[in-house]
């Protein structure tokens, strides 16, 4: 997939993976990479951005005698998923236009 497109999608994939449960780094990578390629080093800046925009909050919890950082989606994060979904119609019409022009020949 185009790198720019992928970058845009990844953020929403990460948010989606947090939608119904709090999660931690490795779990997010596992969940999201079923659909789109993601590595730890690409995930980190995304999490940072989401945290900075207050779409997620973090907390640390003890897990088997060590600390694990968990991420939780905020109402603002849920809202931005919704905005992304609402944009889909627009994306679809762009797709139709591009496809239409290609088929036109």
């Amino acid at each position: 997939m185009d790198a720019q497109l992928k970058k845009g999608f990844l953020e929403f994939c990460v948010l989606a993976s947090l939608k119904n449960k709090d999660s931690y780094g490795y779990q997010i990578v596992k969940d999201v990479s079923q659909y789109i390629e993601i590595s730890e080093s690409t995930l980190y800046p995304i999490l940072r951005r989401l945290e900075a925009s207050q779409s997620v909050v973090t907390y640390t919890e003890e897990h088997k005698n060590r600390l694990r950082k968990y991420y939780r989606i905020t109402p603002k994060g849920k809202e931005s998923i919704q905005l992304f979904l609402d944009e889909w119609k627009e994306i679809q019409s762009i797709y139709e236009y591009i496809k239409g022009e290609m088929d036109h020949e």
Partner: peptide, 30 residues
Amino acid sequence: DYYAEMIEDRMEEGMSEESAVEDLGDVGVI
């Protein structure tokens, strides 16, 4: 801390320490 957690989570799933580190990729690239 982030990468240590990643390695530990992999090891918890049964990976050996070496392969958990290997799975992350080249440290220079990271």
